[in-house]
């Protein structure tokens, strides 16, 4: 799987991102609570479907873009990505079952299997990026202060990974919109505090979930900027979110194959 595609897709999958309840200067416990709420708001125990536009710019290479249909079932942790555009990519797909990541290419009619423990497609993304948000469980928050992001007032939190937490980024900074409680900006850092990437969530959508009996929030637009390889960036635009139950046999090889027949 091409590096940049996975990177984008992975980031996109993490897209059902946290948002936070607007609070005044909080204590440690309150911060943890904030994160819990953040995690919770995006939590959806049902099925999830959307379509997305993914764009990848890499220095020294041609710009690429994809349109995908994205499916996820939290219940048994299954994932399916179907590429719909451009024409040369249509019909290709990823299917994640357990720890297996299957890739299908209809032009050659072949399936490939990779164990998820691998660096996926040679990128830095790994299993974490595909999982739901568990910030409250995995990180310890600290309050940095109130800051302005453009015209918006935000809470700036600084997160440190807990001992033993299996996360991709040991240090994370979050800027949470005071008014709406959504995360607007996230900085991922290495243990040395070196800034690795910056992600912006300027637009948000919400959908009512039957199974949850509440709204589920997710970003409508994600912009990721690589801070190590300057000039590399990704754009994800999500639309057509649907939380209705998905077809029972959707997460099968047969289903993906059928799409391109």
């Amino acid at each position: 799987m091409k590096a940049s595609t996975s990177f984008v897709v992975a980031a996109f999958v993490a897209a059902v991102a946290p948002s936070a309840h607007a609070l005044a200067v909080p204590s440690e416990a309150e911060l943890v609570q904030m994160l819990t709420v953040v995690d919770d708001r995006q939590q959806n125990t049902g099925d999830y479907r959307s379509t997305a536009y993914l764009e990848q710019k890499e220095r020294g290479k041609e710009d690429t873009a994809f349109e995908v249909a994205f499916y996820r079932r939290d219940a048994d942790d299954k994932l399916m990505i179907l590429f719909t555009k451009p024409k040369t990519e249509a019909g290709k797909g990823y299917l994640r079952l357990d720890k297996n990541l299957f890739f299908y290419d209809p032009t050659v009619g072949k399936w490939e299997r990779r164990t998820e423990r691998e660096r996926i497609g040679g990128t830095n993304s790994n299993r974490q990026d595909f999982d739901e948000s568990r910030l409250a469980v995995e990180y310890t928050p600290k309050y940095v202060g109130e800051e302005k992001l453009g015209k918006l007032d935000t809470h700036h939190l600084s997160l440190t990974a807990k001992e033993g937490a299996d996360v991709a980024y040991p240090l994370v900074d979050l800027w949470i919109d005071k008014a709406s409680g959504n995360i607007l900006k996230r900085e991922d850092k290495a243990l040395s505090a070196k800034l690795l990437r910056t992600t912006y969530y300027p637009k948000w959508n919400k959908v009512y979930s039957e199974s949850k009996k509440a709204d589920v929030f997710f970003p409508a637009e994600i912009r990721i900027f690589d801070e190590v390889e300057k000039g590399n960036s990704s754009l994800i635009v999500i639309r057509d979110v649907d939380l209705k139950p998905l077809d029972a046999n959707l997460f099968t090889k047969a289903w993906l194959e059928s799409k391109s027949r």
Partner: peptide, 29 residues
């Protein structure tokens, strides 16, 4: 560019359901 436009974050409610994905004929070899 992203946050300087308005002083409120746009949160849109989505109600419609997406249509089933149908692909054009895939170019097989």
């Amino acid at each position: 560019a992203l946050f300087g436009g308005s002083d409120a974050v746009e949160v849109q409610a989505v109600a419609e359901s997406a249509a089933e994905v149908v692909l054009d004929k895939v170019d097989r070899q």
